[in-house]
Computed example of a mutant assay.
Amino acid sequence: MAVTTLTEPITDAVHLSVDMQNIFARGGVWETPWMERVLPVIVEIAGRYATRTVFTRFITPMNATDRPGRWRRYFDKWHRATRAELPSSELELVPALRRFVPPARLIDKPAYSAFSESPLVEFLLQKNVSTLVVTGAETDVCVLASVLDAVDLGFRVLLVEDAVCSSSDAGHDALMTLYRARFSEQIELIKSEELPLLWCKDM
């Protein structure tokens, strides 16, 4: 096991797992091939910290016209992802993670960020959460938007490197470089094997 480079214990934390849904799994409209690789890691983290886990779901509009501005153009292109055409099961969590709810919490959102038009901030503040351990899909879209919003809100952010996935290798790699080079004071990169060393179950 690698020796962690982090020295500060993880306390008052929530595992925030972004958009691990069927629509991003194999055969989905937005298939993310890496998901199969990171899913066992996220299952292990969710299983260890089930009561401290929040799963988000990206809920698409019924029709493109239900969303404002350029979202309409986006969903005109991706009309197959609108709820008028998409089976509702595609927006559910993948089966391997669905079993953790409850006690894990499920929060829906209509846009990329986990904080966009969702009750996430209020939930975290009510629970006195100060740290987010982030996993999920996609590294360079919904995870990116969620992480930057979390930084703006003042949360300590730990991104689990081997538990985030993208459909773009270049996008994923660019984000890892960006975090290390520009956000090192606010975003910490961590391997899943390091989590138990710093985050005790009862914290």
Rank of each mutant, 00 (worst) to 15 (best):
E44W: 13
V54A: 00
R52Y: 07
T56H: 05
W78C: 06
Y74C: 08
V54M: 03
T56R: 07
T65G: 05
L39V: 02
E44V: 05
A50Y: 01
P61K: 00
T53C: 08
M35D: 15
P61Q: 05
F75G: 09
R67I: 05
L39C: 12
T32R: 10
Y49I: 07
K77L: 09
P40Y: 06
W30H: 11
M62C: 11
Y74N: 08
F55Q: 12
N63H: 14
G47V: 00
D66E: 03
T65V: 10
R48L: 09
V38F: 08
R80T: 14
A50K: 01
H79V: 06
E44A: 15
N63P: 06
T53D: 01
A81P: 00
V29G: 07
E36M: 13
P40E: 13
G47L: 01
G28A: 09
V41R: 14
M62D: 14
W34F: 13
M62R: 12
E44L: 09
V43F: 08
M62P: 07
P68Y: 00
Y74I: 02
D76R: 00
K77A: 07
M35R: 11
V38C: 05
M62Y: 13
R37Q: 13
R72H: 09
V43G: 03
R72D: 06
A81N: 00
F55D: 08
G28L: 03
P68Q: 04
Y49S: 04
A46I: 01
R57S: 09
F75M: 03
R52D: 05
M62L: 15
A50Q: 08
P40D: 12
V54F: 02
P68N: 01
E36V: 14
P68L: 05
F55Y: 07
M62F: 13
M62N: 14
W71D: 06
I42P: 01
T56D: 04
Y49H: 06
G28C: 14
R48Q: 14
T53Y: 06
E31H: 03
I42H: 09
I59K: 05
G47F: 03
H79Y: 11
F58Q: 04
T56L: 04
N63M: 10
R48P: 03
R67P: 00
M35F: 12
T53R: 09
V41Q: 10
R70N: 12
K77E: 07
M35Y: 12
Y49V: 04
R80A: 14
W34M: 15
R48N: 13
P40G: 06
T51F: 06
A81W: 01
E31Q: 12
G69M: 05
A81R: 01
W71R: 10
W30D: 11
V54H: 02
L39T: 11
E36I: 04
A50V: 02
L39S: 09
R72G: 08
K77R: 06
A64M: 00
T32K: 12
N63F: 13
R72V: 10
L39M: 10
G47A: 10
L39E: 08
V41A: 10
K77M: 08
T82Y: 08
F58R: 05
T65A: 08
G47D: 02
G28K: 01
P61R: 07
F75K: 03
R57I: 00
E31N: 09
Y49F: 11
D76V: 03
R52E: 04
G28T: 08
P33C: 14
D66V: 06
